[in-house]
Design a binder for these strands. Structure first.
Lengths: 221, 221
DNA sequence: CTCAACCCTCGACCAGCGGTTGAGGTCCGT
DNA sequence: ACGGACCTCAACCGCTGGTCGAGGGTTGAG
């Protein structure tokens, strides 16, 4: 109930972030990125929320190379109820609503305003040729609902383009679609077909599982 | 069509990037981010493509806080055939940066010293009961090589424990194992069975694809 | 030919970021 | 009352991303 000591926190985080240390956690507090409670005698006590904050910081650092100064601003924005408004890649004059700067890789929370892109906007935002989009659609990797696409389609298209450079074309990626469908199906089995509080949490967990599994099966150096 | 001298380049870029200097441009060359041609007497001559490259670098630095090392990798990726806008007509200076996609979300680089845990260490680190570990092993989600486990097993076990709280038990998770295996199989088809430079890059991409696909298929709020 | 403006290299130096280390001391469970 | 976990504070450190200056060629206008 009372929160965790710094040693325990270290254990928890080290599974996910190899280079975290006690001194780093203390440093992050000194920089104002977390503010754990203290016991009467001065020991830090980390709540679950503090842990989430730490995970946020470590993830942003590792995956987005953001400087602490910027991460701190994002956290501040979150605290104030805003969304981080990550300055994504500069958008061309054909300005769209906003490219989703992916605040946090594993944030599956409901985004208040879901992006709705026309096909042209999607193409421009992802910077991919129209044919690639066609192929992706024909294999069910990108789907339009009505005549617009969600923000995830940008990421999908961009990644597909990068994979194409390795010789992996959309048709090779069908299995990913299947796997994702099954995964979502499993989640819906638990939470029901409507989006609930749990949906995002579960998705974050299963994606984390997936990532760890892939990593664990990769050939070792 | 001789290209521009460094002073001229400076003028052009300073309109857009306040803090660019001659020495910075030279520094970027020294770091291998641009490779301008040289005149017989050694003067640098920047082509339009070199200018685009510089703009790309400066934009990525300013707007996405990317370290030069990462920017260099992105440029390398573009050079290796991914050039939706890179080789196209240099439109607006800011149109370039959107192509390479977001930074790699997960680090799949080879870790110098791979963790080797005994079963007890794993259990302790993940904080899960032994039975869960048994089940995970029997379904192939966690595998020992020899008599030790890798660091990813910690994450796998922890996530499995959290999922169990939602009623998802190891046997429900077999599909994840299969999906991960297939994913790694695909990667190895490209890179061969040994770990190479590309292995990690590719894994990061496929995991990113997977994540985006799941997200895109989750029920909307 | 000469002069100013421009450009070159190379090595030394530097500031800030993101921590690490260690000394010296307190707190807590057994 | 002991060992291990925790505390603070100041000094130190390695890396990144440059800057600066000395010493010296190149170019082009006059």
């Amino acid at each position: 109930m009372g929160g965790r000591g710094i040693g325990e926190v270290l254990q928890l985080l080290q599974a996910e972030f190899a280079d975290v240390t006690i001194s780093k956690i203390r440093f992050l507090e000194a920089e104002g990125l977390v503010t754990p409670a203290r016991t009467a005698s001065g020991y830090r006590k980390f709540s679950a929320a503090d842990l989430d904050r730490l995970r946020y910081v470590l993830t942003a650092q590792r995956d987005q190379y953001l400087p602490l100064k910027v991460i701190k601003e994002h956290l501040g924005a979150i605290d104030r109820g805003l969304q981080p408004a990550a300055a994504g890649p500069p958008v061309a004059p054909s300005s769209l609503p906003q490219t989703p700067g992916q605040p946090v890789p594993e944030d599956f929370g409901a985004t208040g305003t879901e992006l709705r892109l026309t096909r042209d906007e999607l193409r421009a935002a992802a910077g991919v040729p129209s044919e690639l989009l066609d192929e992706l659609e024909s294999h069910g990797l990108v789907v339009a609902s009505g005549n617009h696409y969600g923000g995830d389609a940008i990421v999908i298209a961009q990644v597909a383009a990068e994979l194409a450079a390795y010789g992996l074309e959309p048709r090779h990626l069908r299995a990913f679609r299947t796997a994702a469908d099954r995964e979502v199906g499993l989640i819906e089995q638990v939470t029901g077909p409507r989006r609930t509080e749990q949906t995002g949490e579960l998705a974050a967990l299963t994606v984390r599982l997936h990532t760890a599994l892939v990593r664990s099966r990769l050939p070792r150096s």
